[in-house]
């Protein structure tokens, strides 16, 4: 019997997903015994996945330029099963926040406006380098995805579970739970009347961070990380994305806040007060999923210069 084969492709990445694979440490040797690794740039020299015989393709990173798009399509064509590996591939990840700006605004900031830049001729790189797309895209904007392995990056334990499922021909599913369900911090079902910025007040070490008035995305975030951030007394920022069948992580979170804030309607704070206490709604509720949310990008209205109307005589 031939072993199933694996090909791994990387797009616009920070390399954290690839390090997460290496963080299987010695267990990686066992994985390499069980699976025929055909292509992974961090390990091998081949430039692209083999034309035939790829059982599973992993793709990490979002699609930021034209080359990324070509390579994504190539992997899809050649793989029986495609896994969106990590938050960027699945939801756009943190670099998806770039979609709040146009490509030209980004280029101008990086190459002209930044303080230490000395660029009197206002050169924007354009030779040799591949053209950028207008926005950063999660991979399912372009291709069908069979499985999503979320996380920034996915924990090595889940990577091993996914590989085991694929080897045994089983379906891979994350438990239908949220980060709160796995969190060891104690909830007292207390109403929150005020939200605080992280670091501006004392933190009680065994109590739910959200109930202490700190933004924590546990209620709107898919479980699978074993609540690794709240366990280290840092709030969840949502890197596993929304739970299954939820389209928009922010909508889910705002819904969850409703029940946390309004327990006694007579004492509930005004919505305007809450909005003021959360100064960055997109970066707080959609930090990893903006490019995959209801909005996906900011709408940029072109500035239209109008002439003052002349009075009719």
């Amino acid at each position: 019997m031939t072993k199933p084969s694996l090909a791994v492709e990387t797009l616009s990445i920070c390399s954290g997903c690839e390090i997460a694979i290496l963080d299987l440490h010695l267990a990686l040797a066992d994985v390499l015994d069980a699976i025929d690794l055909k292509y992974i740039q961090v390990l091998m020299d081949h430039r692209e996945p083999p034309k035939e015989g790829v059982t599973v393709g992993f793709v990490s990173g979002g699609v930021r330029n034209e080359e990324h798009l070509e390579r994504l399509k190539m992997l899809r064509e050649r793989s029986q099963i495609l896994v969106a590996f990590g938050a960027c591939s699945a939801f756009g990840g943190v670099p998806g926040l770039a979609n709040l700006h146009t490509k030209d605004e980004i280029m101008e900031e990086v190459y002209i406006n930044t303080k230490s830049t000395v660029n009197p001729k206002k050169i924007i790189p354009h030779k040799i380098v591949p053209p950028m797309l207008e926005e950063l895209h999660p991979v399912d904007d372009f291709v069908k995805v069979d499985y999503v392995l979320p996380g920034c990056p996915p924990p090595p334990k889940l990577i091993a579970e996914l590989v085991t499922c694929l080897l045994e021909g089983r379906e891979f599913h994350l438990e239908p739970k949220t980060v709160c369900d796995q969190c060891p911090l104690i909830k007292e079902e207390k109403a929150v009347t005020e939200f605080k910025r992280w670091g501006t007040d004392k933190v009680f070490t065994e109590r739910c961070l959200l109930e202490q008035g700190y933004q924590c995305l546990g209620p709107s975030t898919q479980a699978g990380c074993e609540a690794r951030c709240p366990t280290a007394l840092s709030p969840c920022r949502g890197c596993f994305g929304p739970t299954e069948n939820v389209e928009d992580q922010a909508a889910k979170m705002i819904g969850a806040l409703g029940s946390i804030v309004i327990q006694d309607p007579s004492k509930a704070p005004a919505p305007e007060k809450i909005v003021k206490e959360v100064p960055d709604l997109v970066g707080t509720y959609l930090r990893f999923t903006f490019a995959h949310s209801t909005f996906k990008k900011a709408v940029h209205t072109p500035t239209v210069k109008t002439k003052p109307m002349e009075a009719k005589t």
């Binding site: 616009s12 930021r64 330029n65 080359e67 670099p95 926040l97 770039a98 709040l100 700006h101 605004e105 980004i106 280029m107 900031e109 990086v110 930044t114 790189p125 040799i128 380098v129 591949p130 950028m132 950063l136």
Partner: peptide, 12 residues
């Protein structure tokens, strides 16, 4: 030597 990707952290 050319580097081929930019993500724009300074902007976003």
């Amino acid at each position: 030597f050319s580097v081929m990707d930019v993500r724009g952290y300074e902007k976003f």
